[in-house]
């Protein structure tokens, strides 16, 4: 690839900052007055995320940031985003298809990083997979909600109206990725909102903001100037469980076949 990716990103980001609604909004955000940002035009965005597994170091800062930013219940088993570690033992004659038996863990959602428990340099491989709601374009959770409390907004974000949710949990069953949970404080469903309160003000999500390696990047598929287009063009990407045909909009670079 002849493109200098870093340079491209820098240019594209500048371009992004100087044009479009997000750019205008950013000026206000930078001044500390995000509430004064010009009206967000919902029809001009369609949000997605790019996750680079090659870059994720499993530090768990995204998980922590999400918990704080979105007031996610503190207990271990409620996550809007979490990180999984995959460990695929070395192939040997007894298990030639080692990827069928990955060892996976996600202690407290990977929030505090991962204990170093696996041997290295022995033919095994290990990597981290950050997960969140895929903001599916053909989302099964939206399809099954009996009252329409879960819906897809025109800018491609799957959201939950907590004042409307009856707490039937049908959507939790219907999500193939385990992205939803019932908030014990409200008895309604909760999940990643793609930091809707931030992205409509021209900010990126909390998880993308804190990621030290840039492994997670928010992208706007309706903005031709968004760097995500170049990322998707220059990488071989895959979505989780493509056989589910959910129209997932979280694209992974370097997704291994063992990842479920």
């Amino acid at each position: 690839m002849s493109v200098d990716r870093r340079q491209f990103l820098a240019d594209a980001t500048k371009f992004l900052l100087l044009t479009g609604a997000a750019g205008q909004a950013w000026a206000f955000v930078a001044e500390g007055r995000p509430q004064d940002a010009p009206d967000y035009d919902i029809a001009r965005h369609w949000w997605a995320m790019f996750i680079d597994i090659e870059k994720c170091i499993g530090c768990g800062r995204c998980v922590e940031a999400c918990k704080i930013e979105n007031d996610v219940p503190d207990e271990p088993f409620y996550f809007r985003t979490w990180v999984e570690r995959y460990y695929i033992p070395a192939r040997d004659v007894t298990s030639p298809r080692a990827e069928d038996h990955p060892k996976v863990d996600s202690p407290d959602g990977g929030r505090h990083g991962f204990p170093d428990i696996y041997p290295k340099e022995d033919g095994s491989k290990s990597f981290f997979v950050p997960k969140l709601c895929n903001h599916c374009a053909h989302s099964p959770c939206v399809q099954v909600c009996p009252v329409g409390a879960t819906f897809e907004s025109p800018d491609g974000v799957v959201l939950v109206d907590k004042d409307y949710c009856i707490g039937c949990r049908y959507c939790v069953q219907a999500c193939p990725y385990g992205c939803r949970f019932i908030d014990p404080r409200t008895n309604t469903v909760d999940k990643c909102s793609l930091c809707y309160h931030r992205i409509t003000k021209g900010l990126t999500t909390a998880c993308c903001e804190v990621c030290p390696t840039g492994a997670r990047q928010l992208g706007d598929l309706r903005n031709p100037a968004d760097p995500i287009h170049e990322l998707l063009r220059t990488h071989k990407v895959q979505v989780l469980k493509p056989n589910m045909a959910t129209g997932s909009k979280v694209y992974y670079n370097g997704l291994d076949a063992s990842v479920r």
């Binding site: 939206v142 009996p146 009252v147 329409g148 707490g167 039937c168 409200t186």
Partner: peptide, 24 residues
């Protein structure tokens, strides 16, 4: 079983047409 039984009336008032459960 519902988290908010008092809202179940919404299934009649504003049923979501694509939901199998809404027809119950």
């Amino acid at each position: 079983h519902l988290g908010h039984p008092e809202r179940s009336i919404e299934m009649f008032l504003t049923p979501h047409k694509t939901s199998a459960m809404a027809m119950f």
